[in-house]
Computed example of a mutant assay.
Amino acid sequence: MSKFGEKLCFILTWITQGSNYLSAYGYGVMHRMHHAFADTEKDPHSPKYDPNPLAMMWRTKNIYQQINKQKIAIEEKFTKNVPQWKSFDKFASSWYSRIGWGAFYTVFFIIFAEYWWHWLLLPVAILMAPIHGMIINWFGHIYGYVNFKVNDTSKNLFRFDWLMLGEGYHNNHHKFGGRANFGGVRWHEIDVTYMIMLLLEKLGWIKMNRVMATPKREI
Rank of each mutant, 00 (worst) to 15 (best):
A129W: 02
V82S: 06
I111P: 00
Y96W: 14
W119M: 08
S94C: 09
S97C: 12
F139Y: 14
K90A: 12
I99A: 11
L122R: 01
G102Y: 06
L127D: 02
I136L: 15
Y105D: 03
G102C: 14
G133W: 07
W116E: 10
M128N: 10
L120W: 13
K86Q: 10
K86M: 07
K86A: 13
Q84F: 12
I135T: 09
G102S: 13
Q84A: 14
Y115T: 11
W117Y: 15
M134G: 00
D89H: 05
K90Q: 12
T106A: 14
A125N: 09
W101R: 01
F104N: 03
W119L: 09
W116G: 06
S94L: 09
G133Q: 12
I99Q: 04
W119C: 07
L122Q: 00
W85C: 02
F91N: 00
Y96L: 13
A129E: 02
G100N: 05
I99C: 06
L122K: 00
F91S: 01
I131S: 05
V124R: 06
L121I: 09
L127P: 00
G100M: 08
P123R: 04
A103N: 05
G100Y: 08
I136F: 07
N81S: 14
G102E: 05
E114F: 08
N81W: 11
F104S: 09
M128C: 07
I136H: 07
F91M: 10
I131A: 14
S87A: 13
I135W: 09
G100A: 08
G102N: 12
L122C: 03
W119D: 04
S93C: 13
Y105I: 00
N81T: 13
N81I: 07
W138E: 03
W138V: 01
S94T: 03
A92C: 13
W85K: 00
F104K: 07
I126D: 02
F109V: 04
Y96P: 00
I135F: 10
E114I: 07
L122A: 02
A125E: 10
W119P: 02
W85S: 01
L121A: 15
W85M: 04
T106P: 01
H118Q: 06
W119S: 04
A92M: 11
P83E: 08
F139S: 09
F109I: 03
F104G: 06
G102W: 05
S94W: 06
I99E: 04
N137F: 05
W116C: 05
I99R: 04
W101L: 06
V82W: 05
M128A: 12
G100R: 08
I111R: 11
E114K: 15
W101V: 03
Y105F: 14
W117A: 05
F104Q: 04
W119T: 04
A113C: 09
L120K: 12
R98D: 06
F109Q: 01
P130D: 09
W101D: 00
W116I: 08
R98C: 08
